[in-house]
Amino acid sequence: MLEIKDLHASVGGRKVLDGINLSVPAGEVHAIMGPNGSGKSTLSYVLAGRPGYEVTGGSVQFRGVDLLALAPEERAQAGVFLGFQYPVEIPGVNNVYLLKAALNAARKHRGLPEVDAFEFLQLVRAKMKLMQMDEAFLSRGVNEGFSGGEKKRNEILQMLVLEPALALLDETDSGLDIDALKVVANGVNTLRAPDRSIVLVTHYQRLLDHIRPDRVHVLARGRILRSGGPELALELEARGYDWLLAEAAA
């Protein structure tokens, strides 16, 4: 699904990614953990094609296609979804309109006709129910006046409607209380499928109690320092990151 090879990238003239190697096969859930400022969001943005995040070396293949050669909207249409760490508020752009426009853009890419209005509403209602979101959110501006937790739920709602092949969820769990965390985790779990991959960027083991990853990677100082199974997350929870950084420095 996703093959990242020796990826280097800079932001604002500063080198942040320093040779990332990561392979995420179809059907797997991978967690990326790491200290603040280690480059996790940068990696997410680079994969989504955010302007200002300059790739200075390496390659990224997504389903055999050179992902870095695609424009941001093409990446989304091809099935890459980024759940933002800080979803932006867009007052005046209607939430349900965005959902529909996004879905239709993806359908168009696949050669499908625009979604039927009735079916669309049925679909959105079902997903909102799953996310325990009130339908009133549909008619509001995108994330406008949403609480932190509501914004995160809205990200997952978008993901559920779009059904991407690759979901990159950047700290979707931070700022959630335990009930909201369960709702979000449940939403993510419903999306697990053999032809889909999920990359969870997280600080906390607690999300991984609800979404069991196939692999866990530690990203620090712009590199993957270690990869392992779910037990690595538990070890990090117990010991922190310093020992890994020390080992890497040695």
Binding site: G49, R50, P72, E73, A76, P87, V88, I90, A101
Partner: peptide, 14 residues
């Protein structure tokens, strides 16, 4: 720019 990128990241054309 942040709003624009958010929309692009949802597959909306520029």
């Amino acid at each position: 720019a942040d709003m624009l990128f958010y929309l692009l990241s949802r597959g909306i054309a520029p």
